[in-house]
């Protein structure tokens, strides 16, 4: 009888790891708190750099999960380490035992209300990157419906690289997501002016730079280097954004119909709480600490505990998938060695 490999989190990391473990002949068990698999990707409409539908990615992962035990809408109430593995009590009262444990717990999106100066939750014209993707997916958002959008702004680094918001990390994906979303809005509202307020553009991956140049050249999106200082509402139901254009060295004020905040990635607090129960190291940025940051990213400080995806830091989709495969292989080897 094969022993369980427990996967905490059913996002793309958990799904891909489970798929690979099944291929390797192991018995993965996914515990997911939401009522569906897919994590944050399931909330997304299209993914950079090719604007491929997020649903296609998930669709590619799902068939490989046949045979895996999946607990949806379930959280872990307690977790303890035994001599021969890990014991979990689930929120439905059942118990699970696993020889190995994979944290695929992902990240939490920064709560944009915390940057009150941007007015999220106060002004109807202010939404987040996730709200926009949901709207692309569902077409439903009371803040967006029935309004012509002629001027749109994007604020980069909301809750990322921001000490005052308690997160000095770069969230890595928002620069590209903002460019992607800007282009997508431009596709829907070809006559709209779109502004991106950024402090740095971090476009490091394959095709990213082309995408950025295309956004300027082909879509006419304006990139303004400077952080937004404050957002206020005007009497005619728009928002005024005040920023500084640091390249021209001038303060700038622009009225917008829609402002999209690129909320960043924060450590998932429930993952941190679980990690503490079995004394896993937590890094000073709040993410789980890998054994080392070059060759041991998926390894933890405890035998039998592995990491995949954004639980150890901010990750892109391909990085997450690669880590999931790598973790699956490491778990397989670990179980083989234990025999």
């Amino acid at each position: 009888m094969k022993e369980n490999v427990i996967i905490l989190g059913g996002g793309i990391a958990g799904m891909e790891a489970a798929r690979q473990l099944l291929l390797l002949g192991e018995r993965p068990v996914i515990v997911e708190r939401a009522d569906h698999l897919g994590g944050h990707v399931a909330d997304w409409h299209r993914l950079f750099p090719d604007k491929s539908p997020a649903e296609d990615l998930l669709e590619g992962l799902r068939p490989g999960l046949e045979g895996a035990e999946i607990h949806l809408g379930t959280t872990v109430s307690s977790l303890n380490a035994l001599k021969d593995g890990y014991n979990l009590t689930l929120s439905d009262g059942s118990k699970l035992h696993g020889r190995a444990l994979l944290f695929a717990t992902g990240f939490e999106l920064f709560a944009a209300e915390r940057k009150e100066e941007y007015g999220y939750g106060i002004y109807n014209q202010v939404i987040t990157n996730r709200d926009l993707e949901r709207w692309f997916n569902t077409g439903k958002d009371s803040r967006l419906s029935g309004r012509p959008l002629s001027k749109i702004g994007f604020v980069h680094c909301v809750g990322s690289r921001d000490l005052k918001a308690g997160n000095p990390q770069c969230s890595k994906v928002c620069c590209m997501t903002a460019i992607k979303q800007a282009i997508e809005l431009k596709e829907r509202f070809p006559f709209a002016e779109v502004y991106c307020f950024y402090m740095d553009l971090r476009l490091f991956g394959k095709k990213y730079e082309d995408f950025y140049i295309g956004a300027q050249r082909d879509w006419g999106i304006h990139f303004i280097r400077g952080r937004v200082s404050e957002v206020a509402e005007t009497l005619d139901g728009r928002v005024v954004v005040k920023a500084e254009d640091t390249l021209s060295g001038r303060p700038l004020k622009v009225s917008l119909d829609l402002l999209v905040l690129m909320a960043g990635m924060l450590p998932n607090p429930s993952a941190t709480a679980l990690a503490r129960q079995i004394r896993l190291d937590v890094d000073d940025d709040g993410f789980l600490r890998s054994r080392d940051n070059l060759a041991g990213i998926i390894a933890s400080n405890r035998p039998g505990v592995f990491y995949a995806g954004a639980c150890t830091g901010t990750k892109t989709v391909p990085e997450t998938l690669a880590e999931a495969r790598s973790a699956a292989l490491a778990i397989h080897n670990y179980l083989q060695d234990a025999k």
């Binding site: 009150e116 100066e117 007015g119 106060i122 200082s229 404050e230 957002v231 206020a232």
Partner: peptide, 9 residues
């Protein structure tokens, strides 16, 4: 207070 629009509201 401009930075905390909740208050001015």
């Amino acid at each position: 207070t401009q930075l905390t629009p909740g208050i001015s509201r």
